[in-house]
Amino acid sequence: MLKLSKYVLYDIVRSKIILAYTLFLFLVSFSLFNMEENSSKAIMSLLTIILIVVPMISMIFTTIHYYNSYEFIELMLSQPMSRRKILLSEYAGVSVSLLSSFLIGVGIPILVYSPDAIGFSFLFTGGALTLVFTSLAFLTSVIARDKARGIGFALLLWFYFALIYDGLILLILFTFSDYPLEKLTLVLTALNPIDLGRISIMLKMDVSALMGYTGALYKDFFGSGSGILFTVGIMFLWIILPLWGALRIFKKKDL
């Protein structure tokens, strides 16, 4: 299994796309840290970019990779290896390469300019988002039959988490504005990994004061030990559940 992962990883690195991605992240973060007058402002701008780019690239790259290695996967299936192992090695290969891209591209600038609690939680969030959306992409790829549909599906899902979900929250907030919604918004935002990542970082920064009463409530919650555990737990579920679903479907699937 390890051998297979290694092979997948080698294959990905050779394609150079991942190198371009690393370089892109590196240049963006480096220039933001140089442009903005203080590191917290840079982190704020970087956050906006990362929250869009990381999920999108993770999903699209994973989907394309999956369909491109379709023949390879079929070949592997003819070998005495369980389907579970094959898919997991693919997952390991893709996620390790994307994760290291992120950790190198964004991690190095952060270690240089902002090696503090905010910086580390930023790296955690970015890393978790990479893994979450890689998992999700595996799920959609396994479900969809052809490449075009798979990419479309992946993009739609990305669009949903990055944009539509927040629109729905806004809709709910306005529809039920007569009710006390502080706790509801807390739960709803926690159910979207992108929102969860954004809020858990923002609450560590000065900007959280702008979030007013709701923000204060959030801060009480996310600032506590159980809040941190909760964030990590939800992210973990978002990684495990789609992957588990993908495995189940892949096992039964007629390839």
């Binding site: 704020m44 906006t48 629109g167 504005s177």
Partner: peptide, 20 residues
């Protein structure tokens, strides 16, 4: 304007949707 009407919407501060 949205936030003025419904302060809970501040939770979407700096989100992609808000900038759009």
């Amino acid at each position: 304007m949205i936030v003025e009407e419904n302060p809970n919407a501040l939770i979407l501060l700096r989100s992609f949707m808000v900038s759009l």
